[in-house]
């Protein structure tokens, strides 16, 4: 089965970077620039691994996860966070159970691929 990956990041260079690395390794990937975009894709039936930026305008990564859970769209997906922040945010406490792992920026292609190959297995 061809499992998809979605990258959610407001920064176009991060989206492109992830896109290039993962396409080069043969994954199919879609890139969206906001939490809203991520929800739209999930409503359309996306199932796969979601790489989610934490700090985004309007709806940050945690708000997005809360909304995914609210709409019952979490099932079958796996979420990993892309983050530049070390400290846990207070919002995170209730939501950590939805997050499999963290990829810290700046990441190398090896670091990204390691997380992707490990967690894509969990996508149902």
């Amino acid at each position: 089965m061809n499992k998809e990956i979605m990258v959610v990041d407001d920064d176009p260079s991060i989206r492109s970077t992830v896109d290039i690395i993962l396409k080069t390794s043969g994954y199919s990937i879609c890139a969206v620039e906001s939490g809203q975009g991520c929800l739209d894709r999930l409503r359309e039936g996306f199932r796969g691994l979601i790489l989610m930026d934490v700090m985004m305008p309007k709806m940050d990564g945690w708000d997005t996860i809360a909304a995914i859970e609210d709409e019952g769209l979490y099932k079958g997906n796996v979420i990993c966070m892309l983050t530049a922040v070390h400290d846990p945010c207070p919002k995170l406490e209730k939501l950590t159970e939805y997050v499999m792992d963290y990829v810290r920026k700046p990441f190398t292609s090896e670091e990204l691929l390691e997380v992707v190959t490990e967690y894509i297995e969990y996508v149902q």
Binding site: D11, S13, I14, S16, T17, I20, I21, T24, A84, V85, K105, P106, F107, T108, S109, L112
Partner: peptide
């Protein structure tokens, strides 16, 4: 330092490629 991490990502990830 936070803000520098984002623009550093393409450099760190893509230059070796």
């Amino acid at each position: 330092s936070h803000d520098l991490k984002t623009p550093l990502t393409p450099l760190v990830a893509l230059l070796p490629m």
